[in-house]
Nucleic acid binder design. Structure first.
Lengths: 236, 236
DNA sequence: AACTGTGAAGCCATTCACAGCT
DNA sequence: AGCTGTGAATGGCTTCACAGTT
């Protein structure tokens, strides 16, 4: 019973594989910790977090346990400390340079999205295949032709890309990005990617989100509002 | 062993609660079935679906089993039939009228997003609080002032809304939408909603998606590429 | 007293494996 | 032979409950 547990050092160094469901919630926690931090709150508890995000306190503790032991019994979690820890896990204690490929209306919106820089992601280049779009400026980013993709990625040390091209072009562009050295792609095209190398892909299909929603509406109204169970948000 | 199973009729009528993880995959299947349908392919198997989407065949069969028994042993699934069945589950055999609230760059992008009408969702109204934006037209939709929110929702029988307003306004607008009769909200503001009535909410937080991605990149590169396991996409 | 960290139990989701239909 | 539908087995995630720390 006096055996030392050395697992926490292991955990905080980020060597263990955190289940992806947990990683998703860690993002939520980070958002909440950042909010508290801005307000100058220095301490919070698993219960407070749980209530704010609609989870159970036990789950919050288990999840935060993946980072190591940062809570103080009787007190709670130290807000600025957790912000730091969480950013470390996500790698957002440093800024990630991003490319946006495809400058249609969605690409433009993402290029300007305020939430990205706030969380440590900075678009530094944009590409499109359409002649008329090339050379246009959005903020301080000028749209470049696809031919400059590889060179710019290297020159600007870009490791993440947002893919907002039409579905038929997505697979090919993704391969180019991967070969050019991009390590992660956030894909908005409604196709399932199959990348050879070790480039990570996260896909966001907006129509699918709406289908999730219409399914809920469809079934909730079908079984009528006599079913007593307040519906909760389901993420992303 | 000769007892008749009457559960399939039950299932196909959509009375049972399908787990949300399954519902997500059903969307993927629908997308794939629709692609096949356009190409004129009339039949497919659980294995084909599984390979195309990066899942296991057993899982595909289990999932489709929630709809009832529509596969034919030795043959597979009838493509047009499955498209119909799946649309019924999502309620997209009929068109859903949508409102877009908040016509910033993201709102505009969603207003024009081609993937929505393709899947049975049609924006029919847009609202914003900013004077200069009111009256502007996007396609055949004219941006209206927030004061007309309730009346237009009733007049146009709008049941779904896309919420693309700044985080600080999100909660309040969501409540207005809910009271006005909207049954489902697709929320893009990075806040966790708490709606009183029986309005469903699905939230899409784009920064969180990027964090998932950077986590993957961070850990995959950290443990080096000596780990032999091709990374697969994780959806939406 | 307040709160964390964590084994143990319980619950849900996925995979296995095969009977049965075409 | 090819393929579905589905119980049984497995694996993973969540909740419970409480010992231990401040």
């Amino acid at each position: 019973m006096s055996v030392r547990k050395s697992y926490s050092a292991d955990a905080q160094s980020g060597r263990n594989p955190i289940p992806s469901l947990v990683v998703k919630r860690l993002s939520l926690y980070l958002g909440y910790f950042e909010q508290l931090d801005e307000k100058g709150v220095s301490t919070t508890s698993s219960r407070q977090l749980a209530d704010a995000l609609g989870l159970s306190a036990a789950q919050v503790r288990k999840d935060l346990g993946y980072l190591g032991q940062f809570g103080r019994p009787g007190v709670g979690y130290h807000v600025p400390g957790m912000v730091m820890q969480l950013r470390k896990v996500f790698g957002t204690n440093k800024v990630w340079n991003m490319a946006v490929v495809g400058v249609g209306s969605l690409g433009r919106a993402l290029l300007r999205y305020k939430g990205f820089p706030k969380r440590g992601f900075r678009p530094v280049a944009a590409f499109d295949i359409t002649k008329s779009k090339i050379g246009r400026k959005y903020g301080d980013i000028t749209v470049q032709p696809m031919s400059e993709l590889e060179s710019t990625i290297k020159a600007k040390r870009i490791r993440l890309a947002i893919l907002a091209v039409p579905a038929r072009a997505a697979q090919e562009v993704a391969q180019r990005l991967s070969k050019a050295g991009v390590k992660g792609i956030l894909n908005f095209a409604p196709v399932s990617m199959n990348l050879s190398g070790n480039t990570a892909v996260v896909s966001v299909d907006l129509a699918i989100q709406l289908e999730q929603l219409s399914y809920l509406v469809n079934t909730l109204t079908r079984l009528g509002p006599h079913r007593r169970k307040t519906r909760r948000k389901r993420k992303t």
